[in-house]
Design a protein around this nucleic acid. Structure first.
Length: 823
RNA sequence: GCGAGAGUGGCGGAAUUGGCAGACGCACCAGACUUAGGAUCUGGCACCGUAAGGUAUAGGAGUUCAAGUCUCCUCUCUCGCACCA
């Protein structure tokens, strides 16, 4: 009597088994080789989506495969649980963010368990739990002590109605994404992490991470943006001080005819002459109103205003008018630029608009440019001109020479500049980790003493949606005696950016129950670094850069030994349907629950692994899902059809196999080799699955009445199930049991292939004439090259192409092809 | 603009070191079983051609006995950065 494949029953049974026996719990084991496998933890938004299914299915295959290969696999899961949506939901539902978050976590944990993922749930953590964030506060204090956390004023996007800071991506067309009010640039006192201290090391290591995709490394390098240049001092023409600029093009110094300053430049008003006051103030105000996104768009009109002051070009002694310009950024370089309109496109446009002089100082090889003929700046390298003693030099060489000259004259210094800015972590929100600092009128900024940690988020908070941080309004939280002098003081009401939590969660997984320190070094050192990290490309810069930074900081504090957190990184592609990323607004969302309900988790996993290689986008196809389901049904049916054949089968007697049996066995061992290589070295899950499908096809066609069918088919089925188990663990466990195994598949060992069995006895040799396929011949494996050549030349399909031509050469690629060159 | 990646049947995708282009799956077509099938099984399936054969990996050149794969040029698309001085 044949059983039917009912995924729901099978999956429930094995999920309960794995959970009850804690199959995937791990501890440090010095005998086995460790393997730390990690997927990016999710934000508990409510329910999982197909992107999660894909991400975690990929991870699970790797985890189960490595486990079968004998590794001590740590595979944890947790929740990136602080963040704005919880707060918004709380305002909407008049509830508490914690309630919303924990309910979501419970629901999503259930969903993940329904996917049969091999997590060690004993290591689960949620970043909103005080047991987690308290340690982050301690780390913060240590960073504060080391000067790595500091406060400074900076401009931020500010919604006056919501009374909160907005991230750049939350500003839409200059308005607040929530209430549409005009977003202002507001100067606020904010906490920062000094990531720039690590810029050099972060950059350097991008060249020492061979396990990372090149494009992620490139993005990080661009983000860090190291550039070599000079800082040059330009004296005011009235002798009252100097203005410092940064340039990478000191070779164009002789062409600098005016100067541009950022409107926010501290000297802006000082430089402004009384008659220009009105105009300049108006300009500064209008720039300040424009949001940063608009202002930095390429097609934004270059505008400026003359301050009325001048400075002196230190090499030409030409008087240069000083402008404020909207395209000069205060937070890059020194906020002041020497303008060379002939060799910089922006300066060219600016000069054209305001009628400023041009002076060509670099001529292209074999050409002469006149300012009057120029329609755009010449930005390439060339030969120096109009540049005093540097004339005739190649501009690339002049860069170094002019830098040396400036340095020797004390006018400038060679400098290295980074685009990377310090990481602003202050958020005027409730649902985050409170920054453990107290402000005292007498003592200033006072860190919360460690004995007073944690600063817990108060529970009795009202979420009215009236704007501003709920913490700032909560007197019972804000008012606190100063830890130093005991006088009344105020608590910091800002919380930390949620990227802070995700910058070290992978370390905490190593020792989730460390109760007296953020990290337990011996455990962390056993598990770190993460051997394989898997997640979306959208985190290529921010999260991955912050996590690298934190690892280095914690290393310098003595918490960990490794320099880098993630040895290998896999960035998986998006899940696409009908040509677009799945989204509610597009209406092309596939709900994992419905999918599991209808086909089971195994099918959902199988399809998301089979349809595309992991790093590419996956095109969702409902028909394709059915194909995967069909395949599992065929596997189920085949196993049951062959149960009689396989019953009581002993070991294979290799010496007495007949031809067909040997052929089947060869397919089995070749498949094992292929699947092992695809999983181990390449993460080519789609081709590995394809190979197993082929084996199924072969097995189905095999006539199971030969003398040794029992042992041979049993070996084939066992191997097939073993190979499928990382992809579709539930049905595999079940069929493994049906095949009569008393051990659990989750404890089984990955099959080894038999080299001898995988070798072909006969080889198919392709015969080409002048590179064109003309025939195929079959020869025994050990046939000497000369015999193969002779057979190829004598082949009847080849013969007609050799008539009337002279054979010049015969190329023989052993085991593959013969190419007859004739003409 | 700069940087990275990609372009292969009707579709998703294979082709690991330069060596049979299109594995595997989807869709489609035909057949079998069936009262019936949107279940299952068998076979077919790049294009042109009755065939022999020819043509095909975005387009063009090149290297090679042999190119999807290597080199150069052009086009298209995707992603990232983008007034960074």
């Amino acid at each position: 009597m044949e059983q039917k494949y009912i995924p729901g029953d099978v999956e429930q049974k094995w999920q309960a088994f794995w959970e009850d026996t804690k199959t995937f719990r791990v501890t440090e084991d010095t005998v086995k080789q460790k393997y730390y496998l990690l997927e990016m933890f999710p934000y508990p938004s409510g329910r999982i989506h197909m992107g999660h299914v894909r991400n975690y299915s990929i991870g699970d295959v790797v985890g189960r495969f490595k486990r079968m290969r004998g590794f001590n696999v740590m595979h944890p899961m947790g929740w990136d649980a602080f963040g704005m949506p919880a707060e918004n939901a709380a305002i909407q539902n008049r509830s508490h963010p914690a309630q919303w978050t924990y309910e979501n976590i419970d629901y999503m944990r259930g969903q993940l368990k329904k996917l049969g993922l091999s997590y060690d749930w004993d290591r689960e953590l949620a970043t909103c739990n005080v047991a987690y964030y308290r340690w982050e506060q301690k780390i913060f204090l240590e960073m504060f002590r080391r000067g790595l956390a500091y406060k400074k004023t900076s401009f931020v996007n500010w919604c006056p109605r919501c009374e909160t800071v907005l991230a750049n991506e939350q500003v839409e067309d200059g308005g607040c994404w929530r209430c549409d009010s005009e977003v202002k640039q507001k100067e606020l006192d904010q906490w920062f992490f000094r990531i720039t201290d690590y810029a050099e090391e972060l950059l350097e290591w991008t060249h020492k991470l061979p396990g990372w995709p090149e494009r992620v490394l490139t993005m990080q390098r661009n983000w860090i943006g190291k550039s070599f240049g000079c800082e040059i001092d330009f004296a005011r023409d009235n002798g009252s001080g100097t203005i410092k600029v940064f340039t990478t093009r000191q070779d164009t110094l002789f062409g600098a005819t005016f100067m541009s300053l950022a409107p926010e430049h501290p000297l802006a008003m000082d430089l402004t002459t009384p008659d220009r006051q009105h105009e300049v103030s108006a300009f500064i105000e209008s720039v300040r109103k424009t949001d940063r996104i608009k202002r930095t768009a390429e097609d934004f009109e270059k505008e400026g205003v003359f301050t009325g002051s001048y400075c002196i070009n230190p090499v030409t002694l030409v008087q240069m008018p000083i402008y404020l310009a909207n395209f000069v950024l205060m937070d890059y370089g020194t906020g002041a630029v020497m303008a060379v309109p002939t060799h910089d496109q922006r300066d060219f446009e600016f000069a054209a608009r305001y009628g400023l002089p041009l002076r060509v100082v670099i001529q292209p090889e074999g050409e002469t440019i006149e300012p009057a003929m120029m329609t755009e700046a010449y930005t390439e390298s060339g030969v120096m001109a109009n540049s005093g003693q540097f004339d005739g030099m190649k501009s690339d060489d002049a860069k170094e020479a002019i830098a040396d000259y400036l340095q020797s004259k004390g006018i400038g210094t060679k400098t290295i500049n980074f685009r990377l800015r310090d990481w602003g972590i202050s958020r005027q929100r409730y649902w985050g980790n409170p920054i453990p600092v107290i402000y005292c009128d007498a003592c200033g900024v006072v860190p919360v003493p460690e004995k007073d940690l944690p600063v817990e988020l108060p529970v009795d908070v009202l979420f009215t949606g009236e704007g501003g941080s709920p913490l700032a309004r909560l007197e019972s939280f804000i008012n606190v005696p100063c830890p130093v002098c005991g006088k009344p003081a105020r608590r910091e009401s800002d919380t930390m950016d949620t990227f802070v939590q995700s910058s070290w969660y992978f370390l905490r997984y190593c020792c989730p129950d460390s109760h007296d320190a953020p990290l337990d070094r011996s455990k962390v050192d056993y598990w770190m670094s993460v051997d394989q990290y898997i997640g979306g490309i959208e985190h290529a810069v921010l999260h991955l850069l912050y996590a690298r930074f934190f690892t280095k900081v914690l290393r310098d504090m003595g918490y960990v030994s490794c320099d880098e957190p993630f040895t290998n990184l896999l960035t998986q592609g998006m899940v696409i349907k009908d040509g677009a990323k799945m989204s509610k607004s597009k209406g092309n969302v596939v709900d994992p629950n419905a999918l599991i309900e209808k086909y089971g988790a195994d099918t959902a996993r199988l399809f998301s692994l089979f349809a595309a290689p992991p790093e590419k986008d996956l095109d969702w196809s409902d028909k394709g899902v059915e194909g995967s389901f069909r395949f599992l049904n065929r596997v189920w049916k085949l196993v049951h059809d062959r149960l009689e054949t396989v019953r009581n089968a002993g070991p294979v007697d290799i010496s007495s196999l007949d031809g067909e049996e040997r052929t089947l066995r060869r397919s089995v061992h070749k498949t094992i080799r292929k699947v092992t290589e695809d999983l181990d070295e390449r993460f080519h899950f789609n081709t590995a699955i394809a190979a197993v499908m082929e084996l199924l096809n072969t097995l189905q066609a095999f006539d199971a009445t030969t003398p040794q069918s029992g042992p041979i088919v049993k070996e084939a089925l066992d191997s097939l199930i073993l190979m499928l188990s990382p992809f579709v663990p539930h049905i595999s466990e079940e069929l493994w049991q049906h095949l009569g195994h008393t051990d659990r598949l989750s404890d089984a060992v990955w099959p080894e292939y038999d080299r001898n069995a995988a070798v072909d006895e006969e080889l198919l040799i392709v015969v080409q004439v002048n590179g064109k396929l003309r025939s195929k011949i079959t020869v025994a494996a050990e046939t000497p090259e000369e015999t193969i050549k002779a057979a190829a030349l004598a082949d009847e399909k080849v013969q007609p192409f050799l008539i009337g031509v002279q054979i010049r050469k015969v190329i023989c690629v052993p085991g593959k092809l013969v190419n007859i060159v004739a003409g």
